[in-house]
Design a protein around this nucleic acid. Structure first.
Lengths: 188, 188, 188, 188
DNA sequence: TCATAAGCGAGACGGTACGTCGTGTCTTACG
DNA sequence: CGTAAGACACGACGTACCGTCTCGCTTATGA
């Protein structure tokens, strides 16, 4: 007498990760407990631990699942517009998942595999989008040849992360505009 | 016939925070337990919890105590030299206490009081040093009047934190030099 | 490849109570620690506290478990023999578990549920045995009709408890004989 | 600017014991804490521990102080009246201090000195009163020569203690009368 | 008259136990 | 065989109480 139809492995996996996100949104990362996730998904702990070996991996999986795909490379016609569009996406994500990221940073320092997953699916995806935007601008001649693009792409995200996670200052679109207009663009 | 001299409250406090740092250095933030600290300091849990209401506050206190005072404002004669000196301090601190910071960021998001303490004694102290350096440079005419100093001071720290804590890229003096020469100075 | 066979809840419960008794015998009631019990049984505190909400309830459960069943109703052929047999059982129990009883009396006064359990399984069982002996004697005509059996059954136990727990006088078989011959039997 | 006049050692001692009794009456023996006593008496812990080496000794001292002197030997003219008068005193004391006695019994088993103090000042005093009453009755010829007075004096107290502390049955004057009329007097 | 000791309040301290919580492993019973 | 349910060992948390200690003040006594 099951109260729920059987669901294959992949579908169940998505449900579990969804439950993780729900609990994350309600309680934050470190108040999240595997028991809460399991109760939310009407699952068993074994069902979770069969797939992810620890709470950290579970949360990273849910996080990556939530942000995966990453931002589409925008095409507003101007470099400035593209940059602002990407910064907006970053801001929204930080707003929603900043707690999760902050909670995970400690784990990432100790678990290279987790760190690699985050780099690959989160930071990496955003880096690739930014670099694509820069590349297109370079093709249009908007980028000075001696600009250190490998360093510059992360100036914007870095400042936003720094304020959101470390210094606690507000991050909003005005800030994004300031960064783009007074830091990134002048250096290109 | 006491086997040990009496130590006033303030002295005991310093000993406790010292024990926290020792344990932090040996075991890392997340493996740190209050019991370990207490054993190290030959203290009782009450002695700790009388002063700091939770493990997080204890660790923040130890961190703040370790970095407080902040970097002396350097005076190498040139803006570039001063900036590099400050970046070096930042790098050393991150190297030594990066794990602690990463572990604490989650707590800071949920505890405004802790966040304020960190901002006041850690980030704030470094911001004040950097701004003092900028101010001196401005007096010497090395800073363009329209430079957004309030934003620029954090470009260096932000990039360093971003790489050290979020993207996992290496941070070293070469990077510091790159940041100063290709981001901060050009924008001034 | 489990290193130990699974034991159902009921079996585990018996093991835990056994560990309590072991620790009781070794260290006495007041020195008994839940941690010691847990270590002895290779159990977790949760496993204990899941079943019994406090140390007191745990100890009462172990005590009740140890004495439950109570003394078989003896049948020596004579009332005097039966009474002496029951008193002997009482003496042995007091000798072995007197410390535990003395330690528990304080708790029992504040916890009616615990007191009821003790009355039901310890005192009650002994009362029932004594009354059965009296009843059989009455059937044989050895009991005067106007004897206050409801009061008399507890004269023996009461004196023994009084001396063992309160006044600190020795209790031995000679005393038991004295009580039976000079108090109980004459009043019947 | 002291808020309280100085009190010599003996007077302070009585105040402290009074505070113990107050706290005992409010919270019972095992919920009593030395800190509570100290707060109640506006005293310092050292002031308590200078006089009594442990909580148990403190409470026993307060108890003995409260019941000291013991019951005056009554003289109602009849043995029965005298016995009932003494039983009434016992009942009142048990009613008021039963919790304390129950809480202390565990300690007494482990601390012979404490047990001796209780026996001397509490049980002993009551035994002496009862024996005096028996002795007077014997002089009047009310006591059979072969009665085991050394055993009989404790029948009444024992049954009362047993019911009050162990079996949890009610103790009242009707019970006292029953004990005197159906147990003690018939055996004399 | 003043200092010097003794008792005191206040309360911090080391130690030990408590009862709670969370993780990751495990067993059972069901479908 | 995968699952829901949930017991379990382990280990950390934060609280409570005991008995010892130090401090600084007040009182009592002796020079």
């Amino acid at each position: 007498m099951s109260v729920m139809p059987f669901r294959g492995g992949a579908a169940r996996e998505a449900e579990l990760l969804g439950a993780v996100l729900e609990v994350l949104r309600e309680t934050g990362y470190d108040r999240l407990t595997v028991d809460a996730v399991v109760a939310r998904a009407r699952a068993s702990k074994q069902t979770v631990y069969r797939r992810w070996p620890s709470k950290a991996e579970l949360v990273v999986a849910a996080f990556v699942n939530a942000v995966s795909g990453g931002p589409a490379v925008p095409d507003t016609g101007s470099l400035r517009g593209d940059l602002l569009a990407l910064m907006d996406v970053l801001l929204d994500e930080l707003d929603e998942l900043g707690d999760v990221i902050a909670g995970l940073l400690g784990e990432l320092r100790r678990n290279a595999e987790l760190a690699a997953a985050m780099e690959q699916h989160y930071i990496g995806a955003r880096r690739r989008s930014l670099l694509a935007v820069f590349e297109r601008a370079r093709a249009r001649g908007e980028v000075s040849p001696e600009a250190d693009v490998e360093l510059l792409w992360q100036a914007g995200p870095a400042i936003v992360f720094f304020r959101a996670l470390v210094s606690g200052e507000p991050v909003d679109r005005a800030l994004a505009r300031r960064i783009v207009d007074r830091v990134v663009l002048p250096l290109l």
